[in-house]
Structures are given as structure tokens and as C-alpha cells.
């Protein structure tokens, strides 16, 4: 009994390590990320693709009010998984840092620099008393010196750079799919196709243009934009057509 109480004490304040060196509150925050719908990032030589799952709980909900994709600056976009409200705070922090960089140096902020400043902010909430960690992970996609870059942040304040990555629910399966199918020479169109197929992996209901969000940072123009629902739908249609074709092939054999 006593032991159990002691164990519990280690997840009360986040500034307290457990005897085996763990920060329980940070681990719980990672669980919160897993409960969020998935977001996927794919880096290609032509740009970075972000695809988010924004399936709605009710047909009466306005899909456009689901915030999973965020413009950070002209050349940077972000996708989130986990607590939306926490994501909004981080996204606005990132937007402000981007503008501070322009005021201070008259230069667009580097994607790595931006990610580090966001993760430094996240890290403070794992060490300061009276606060809780951010229950959200971000994918930060952008162009830096003409090069596409894709970073991930997690609730501990760690960042990693990826070629292709998934966060949120069903991460394991989606990541495995990406690992099998990723090719370093993909076009942006191929990247969107790959990310949508990865999102489709292990899903029961079909993808729809309203139910997904697609953001692209184009390496040539160095600008971030989000696709309209009908544009996303046409990519989904292409995937379904391709799937039908391969079914036909199977029949012939």
C-alpha cells in the first residue's frame, strides 16, 4: 500500500523523476498524442507534403473548423496530433518566432531554427513547477535555402528530422507503411499519394476530400498552401481508380 502511494507521487509534479529516471507526466502527454487522429509528413525533392486526418464526429460539424493544419509563415506549415488547444498555443508561438526573425534579421526563419525554438519552449514545460507538458506533437514542414525540411516535435521537447513520418493514432502501422513505400525521388504528387495511402492503411471508413487536409510547401516557390477539399478528393479518386485497376489485373490472372 505504502509502495503504491509512493509510486503515485512520482506522477503528481512533473519536475519529479521516478527512481528509475522517468518523467511520468511527459509519458502521459505522449499518450495524449496517440489518442489524436493521425498526421503524416512526407519530404520529397520538390517539397514537403503534410496530410492530416480530420474525420468528424458528426455530419453536422463544419469540417473547416477542425484545426490540424496550420500556416506558420510563408514558407512553413505545421500539422498537429493530440490536444488541439495545446497545438494552437505552440503554433502561435511558432508564428511569432517567425516574425521576430524577420524583424530582427529581415530573413525567413530556418526550419531547424524554428523547430528548435519551439522544442525549447516545450521543454520548459517538463521542468518548471506548476505547469503541465504540451499534450501534442507537431510536424513542422518548410523550405530552407531551397531545401525541403521536415521536423517532428514531441511533448518532451525532443525534435527529429524525417524523410517521412506519422504522428497520432495508428502511428506504428502508418510508419511501417511509409518505411516500405517511401522513395527518395518522389514528386510532390507522389508524396500526396503516398501519404493518403498511408493514412488509408488500417482505416475502416473510406477517405474523403472533406475528411482529410493536405498542405504542401513547394521547394521552388518556397510557399506553403493548403489544398481545397475538391483538390484533395481528386487525389483520393486517383488512388481508388488505381486500386480498381489493380483489382482488374488480379481478375485477369
Amino acid at each position: 500500500m505504502q509502495g503504491q502511494n509512493q509510486q503515485q507521487a512520482y506522477d503528481r509534479g512533473i519536475t519529479i523523476f521516478s527512481p528509475d529516471g522517468r518523467l511520468y507526466q511527459v509519458e502521459y502527454a505522449r499518450e495524449a498524442v496517440k489518442r489524436g487522429t493521425a498526421s503524416i509528413g512526407v519530404r520529397t525533392p520538390e517539397g514537403v507534403v503534410l496530410v492530416v486526418d480530420k474525420q468528424t464526429r458528426s455530419p453536422l460539424l463544419e469540417g473547416s473548423s477542425v484545426e490540424k493544419l496550420h500556416k506558420i509563415d510563408d514558407h512553413v506549415g505545421a500539422a498537429s496530433a493530440g490536444h488541439v488547444a495545446d497545438a494552437r498555443q505552440l503554433v502561435d508561438f511558432a508564428r511569432q518566432q517567425s516574425q521576430v526573425e524577420r524583424v530582427r534579421y529581415d530573413e525567413p526563419i530556418g526550419v531547424r531554427t524554428l523547430t528548435k525554438s519551439v522544442t525549447d519552449h516545450i521543454q520548459q514545460y517538463t521542468q518548471v513547477g506548476g505547469a503541465r507538458p504540451f499534450g501534442v506533437a507537431l510536424l513542422i514542414a518548410g523550405v530552407e535555402g531551397g531545401e525541403p525540411r521536415l521536423f517532428e516535435t514531441d511533448p518532451s521537447g525532443t525534435s527529429n528530422e524525417w524523410k517521412a513520418v506519422a504522428i497520432g493514432s495508428n502511428r506504428g502501422d502508418i510508419q511501417e507503411f511509409l518505411e516500405d513505400e517511401y522513395d527518395a525521388g518522389l514528386s510532390v504528387d507522389d508524396g500526396i499519394d503516398l501519404a493518403l495511402r498511408a493514412l488509408n492503411e488500417g482505416r475502416e471508413d473510406a477517405l474523403s476530400g472533406d475528411g482529410v487536409g493536405v498542405g504542401i510547401v513547394d521547394a521552388d516557390t518556397g510557399t506553403y498552401r493548403e489544398l481545397a477539399a475538391d483538390e484533395s478528393q481528386s487525389y483520393i479518386d486517383d488512388i481508388e481508380d488505381a486500386a480498381d485497376d489493380s483489382d482488374d489485373d488480379d481478375d485477369e490472372e
Binding site: 500556416k71 506558420i72 509563415d73 510563408d74 517567425s98 516574425q99 521576430v100 524577420r102 524583424v103
Partner: peptide, 11 residues
Amino acid sequence: LRAEANLYEAR
């Protein structure tokens, strides 16, 4: 001014 305008647009 630019910083405020860009922030407004991003938000």
C-alpha cells in the same frame, strides 16, 4: 508593420 501584417495573415 510587416510582422503584424504577416501574423494577421497566418492567424
